[in-house]
Design a protein around this nucleic acid. Structure first.
Lengths: 240, 240
DNA sequence: AGACGCTTGTGACGCACGTCACACAGCTTG
DNA sequence: CAAGCTGTGTGACGTGCGTCACAAGCGTCT
């Protein structure tokens, strides 16, 4: 079956091939059946907004495929990208649990497949299944952990260069390239968006990149970035 | 019974008078008994360190009485105060759940009574009791929520004045004074510590306070601060 | 082709704030 | 009462980076 956006929809969580390595998906069969009966499999095009910060929680969105940009916005129009969510993550989880408004805005950055579960159904599901409930606690711990990282990076570093270097290192870690001598990574974000991730201005980001290229620390061809001097990058990340 | 630090220890959670209004403490009797059997009631003096960020999680610390400073530190000696924990909060929760190192450092700022539970015991306890597990999820949601607030305040505001104003408003909210025309609040922290909470320097904090006093927005006698012009404070908090 | 939109690149300018340096005030301690 | 410590108040200085303004590269649409 093809979704409206030319993506194959995985009908059932029971037969999902993506399942094995996900935090939340690998539940025992009984729980999975229960989950199956309350979830709505849906698909979104690029640029769709799953929910907006401040809205009362309608439910959770389990991201199965694609990636989603989570951001925090101020009334004055300033915006800060908190993280890019990957498949397996549950979005809107903490708001759904606590009943408080969503604390971030979620927007797809490519076509996504998502399982939506209504709040009431989800809460009932959790109260019936310790294991699922525990998984949720694990997910929340994870979210809290990365939020702390965010706070650390925002609060403890005193230069934009430091934060940018940290971001690059983190990315090269996540895509498994970090082991190599010269990690390579695809920049899927514009300078503007990178700036929003580290809380600085677009111009500063392009200036920093220019500087790093001049110093032979990185090198770019098209949208891929080659880190030529990891040591120097780490140097920048950890101090000045 | 008097603890080493001149504080009455509440022997049992079952008879605890503080219990009713706590998130985690009001469990059904069976769960409470189970909890009772694995917890260690302990007391700490002012300035005690419950755990340090980076340590592997030994377990959780349920704060019953007193308050605890949670901070994030950088190797370069910079430090940022993330929040002041109040009774009822579970400290070290997310690390204990996930098994990752504690993400913050916890230090008592007055004599505290704490219930400690070893990690293994706690995990077993959770897996036996959906309700407790759900409470934990709620607590984690809460923690995540305030972490998001922190990120918002750090990332979206462009002046120290804005962050300070936000902090003062938040404090006056929390102690219930915010409804009054001229909220009053006790400053329990030094300028240095306030600076660490909003990620700026001590001098800037005292200069900002001086400025606000000059503009008749606040007024201080001893360690209590009187907010004379809430509107102006909000003005500062939301824009500039 | 040109027109339009989005992204990147770069110079000029200014200011908010970090840093250093020192004075003063209140407190505990011997 | 001097000595010492911790917290507050304030001036001088330098700078990182936000902001504005504009040019140039590149893809898409008509």
């Amino acid at each position: 079956m093809l979704s409206p956006y030319g993506m194959e929809i995985v009908e059932s969580c029971l037969t999902c091939k993506l399942r094995a390595d996900r935090i939340f998906c690998d539940l025992p069969a009984t729980a999975l059946h229960a989950f199956e009966s309350i979830k709505y499999a849906t698909a979104y095009p690029q640029g769709a907004v799953l929910f907006v910060e401040g809205q009362l929680p309608r439910g959770i969105f389990v991201l199965c495929k694609g990636s989603v940009k989570l951001s925090i916005n101020s009334p004055n129009g300033r915006t800060m990208i908190v993280k890019l969510a990957e498949p397996g993550e549950i979005l809107g989880l903490s708001a759904t649990i606590s009943g408080k408004p969503y604390e971030v805005t979620a927007e797809t950055i490519d076509p996504c497949q998502v399982n939506f579960v209504k709040r009431d159904d989800f809460l009932r599901f959790l109260k019936d299944d310790v294991e699922a409930c525990f998984k949720v606690a694990e997910q929340l711990s994870d979210k809290y952990h990365t939020a702390c990282q965010e706070v650390r990076s925002l609060g403890l570093s005193h230069s934009a260069a430091e934060k940018l270097a940290n971001l690059l290192l983190e990315w090269s870690c996540k895509n498994g390239e970090s082991a190599k001598a010269e990690p390579r990574l695809k920049l899927r974000l514009t300078h503007e968006e990178i700036a929003q991730m580290i809380g600085t201005s677009r111009e500063t980001v392009t200036r920093l990149f220019a500087e790093m290229k001049r110093r032979q620390i990185v090198q770019s061809k098209g949208s891929t970035l080659l880190i030529r001097n990891t040591a120097a990058l780490r140097e920048i990340a950890n101090h000045n």
